[in-house]
Every structure is written in structure tokens, then in C-alpha cells.
């Protein structure tokens, strides 16, 4: 490249290098912009959550407070308030996520790798289930639980009011999550070798044994995807909590429900408290991501 006067070919290649450099600069600038765009709110939230009320007024939202303006009091308070909600949320999110994944996987297996009549019609029903808007089911759902199912009354001897509400949430979230989980598993099962399933059949395995010994072990990466997706979905869900639980003071109140009222007062919104609360509530989903990160990556590849 040093003897650039020698040939025309060199000059053109030099031009392309320049254009290439410009493209690179553009790319990095855009990426940097995106990093700032995504991280700034998080950073602002974090610094806000450790500010005292005074520091909050005196500093920019994204600027860190001075040494005098730092307090962990809001985190402490948010944690104390949210703790019971976090437990409740865990109690219905984990079982509902597991049930969604297991039932979704089984349904997908039955709809994809087992041959029977009317599969398409049943699958169409599952797909339709994905598109039913939450808003449309709230009223019938609350009526169903409060007027028809009445778990609290019927199972009153076995369950406390809190457990009954949690059970309602587990069932509701499971029912609502199965269609999308089925779709996710089905997309993987459709790529599974049909000959392999047939080989297992000829090896003498029943439909159930094929699922247990072949299909299930091969869908572990997809389980990670579904766990993360469904856990986040159910953990963050608000509308069902609002309608089925009803009140923040209910012993079964979920984390999102408590969070909605956190830091609201007549004298104004307590932003540091809200931020601290938001971070605490988001923590479990983050942990789930980290736990299943490897399997998730593998599952997304499929």
C-alpha cells in the first residue's frame, strides 16, 4: 500500500478501505449510542435509589450524589415492604412456570411427534389461545374464581385464604402460558428426526417412554428458554394479580402489586424508594437469566 502511485488497482482498494473505515466508525458510534440509550435509565435508577431526598432535589437524575447524599435506607425500606410479596410471587411463579413448561412440552410432543387425527384442529385452538387478550378474560376469570370455583370455600379446610389465592394464580398463569410454551416446543420438535422416533418405536418403546427417554432429554435447552421466558412473564404480570388478589394488603399480594403502590403518598412520589423497589423486584428474573444463560444460548440456536 505504500507505493500507491504505482497502480490504479491500489488506489481503488485504498478508497474501499477508507469507505470501510467510515462504515466502522458509524457502526461503533451507533453501538455506543445504543449502549448509552439502554444503560442510562438503569444508571439513573441506581443512583436515584441511593439518594437522600435532599440529594434527589439538588442533583441531576443521572448524576451520582455526593458522599453526604448517599443512603441505603430506601433499599432497606423497599426490601421490608416487598419481602412478603416476593415470597408470594415466588410461590406462584415457580410452580406455574414448571407446569407451563412440562405441560407445554407434552402437548407439543403429542401434537408433533405422535400421529393422530384432528391434530391440526387442536393445534389451531392452542394458537388461538395465544392471541386472546388479557383484558378480554379479566371479567370472566374473576367471576369464574369468585362465583364458580370458589376454592377458598370448597377447600377451606385444607387451604388458608392466602394459599387458595395463590393456587388460583398458579392455575390461571399455567392455563395462560401453555399455548405459547407449546408453540415454542413444537418449533423444536418439528426439527427432530422423525426416523429417530420411528427407530424408538421399533425398539419397542411406547409413546410415553419415547417422550421420557428420547424427546425430554433432547429438549433441555428449549426448557431453559421456556423457563426464562415464562418466569419473566409470570413474575412481571400485573393484571391477573390485580384482579385475582385485589388488594395490596391481601396476605397473598404479589411483588408487582405491592410495587405499584410503593412510594406513593399524598406529599408526592418517593422516587428513590420506587427505584429501589423496582430493582429488588427485578432481581429474581436477572438471577434466572444468569442461571440458564448457557442452556438459553443453546436453545436459541435451535
Amino acid at each position: 500500500m505504500s507505493e500507491r502511485s504505482v497502480s490504479v488497482g491500489d488506489e481503488t482498494s485504498d478508497e474501499t478501505t477508507t469507505a470501510f473505515d467510515l462504515r466502522r466508525i458509524g457502526l461503533y458510534a451507533t453501538m455506543l449510542g445504543l449502549v448509552v440509550f439502554y444503560l442510562l435509565p438503569i444508571e439513573s435508577g441506581l443512583v436515584t435509589s441511593i439518594k437522600t431526598s435532599e440529594a434527589l432535589i439538588n442533583t441531576q437524575p443521572f448524576a451520582p450524589p455526593g458522599p453526604a447524599g448517599v443512603t441505603l435506607e430506601k433499599w432497606q425500606f423497599a426490601f421490608d415492604t416487598l419481602w412478603s410479596g416476593m415470597i408470594n410471587s415466588m410461590l406462584f411463579t415457580i410452580p406455574a412456570t414448571l407446569l407451563c413448561a412440562v405441560l407445554g412440552s407434552m402437548a407439543a410432543y403429542g401434537l408433533t411427534l405422535v400421529d393422530w387425527r384432528g391434530q391440526v384442529a387442536v393445534f389451531a385452538l392452542f394458537i388461538a389461545g395465544i392471541f386472546i387478550p388479557y383484558q378480554a378474560v379479566i371479567v370472566p376469570l374473576t367471576q369464574f374464581w369468585s362465583q364458580y370455583a370458589m376454592l377458598e370455600m370448597r377447600l377451606g379446610l385444607l387451604l388458608s385464604a392466602r394459599s387458595a389465592t395463590l393456587l388460583e394464580l398458579i392455575i390461571t398463569h399455567t392455563a395462560y402460558g401453555i399455548p405459547i410454551c407449546t408453540l415454542l416446543f413444537r418449533s423444536q420438535y418439528k426439527t427432530m428426526s422423525w426416523e429417530m422416533i420411528e427407530a424408538a418405536r421399533l425398539d419397542g418403546a411406547t409413546v410415553w417412554r419415547i417422550y421420557k427417554r428420547i424427546v425430554l432429554p433432547l429438549s433441555i435447552p428449549m426448557f431453559a428458554v421456556v423457563f426464562i421466558f415464562q418466569f419473566t412473564q409470570i413474575w412481571n404480570e400485573f393484571l391477573f394479580s390485580l384482579t385475582i388478589i385485589g388488594s395490596v394488603s391481601d396476605p397473598a399480594a404479589s411483588a408487582t402489586l405491592i410495587l405499584s403502590g410503593l412510594g406513593e403518598a399524598l406529599e408526592g412520589v418517593d422516587y428513590p424508594l420506587r427505584m429501589a423497589g423496582a430493582f429488588i423486584t427485578a432481581l429474581p428474573t436477572l438471577v434466572v437469566y444468569l442461571l440458564f444463560a448457557d442452556e438459553f444460548a443453546e436453545g436459541v440456536e435451535v
Partner: peptide
């Protein structure tokens, strides 16, 4: 199929990965 006492070798081998 599972009760026929027949074994089959497939073109794709169809091994359990």
C-alpha cells in the same frame, strides 16, 4: 410396530444423539 419383533436400520442411522 413396537410389538412386531422387527428391527430396522434407517438411511439417516437415526441414532439417539
Amino acid at each position: 410396530a413396537k410389538d412386531r419383533d422387527i428391527a430396522m436400520v434407517f438411511q439417516s442411522y437415526a441414532l439417539y444423539p
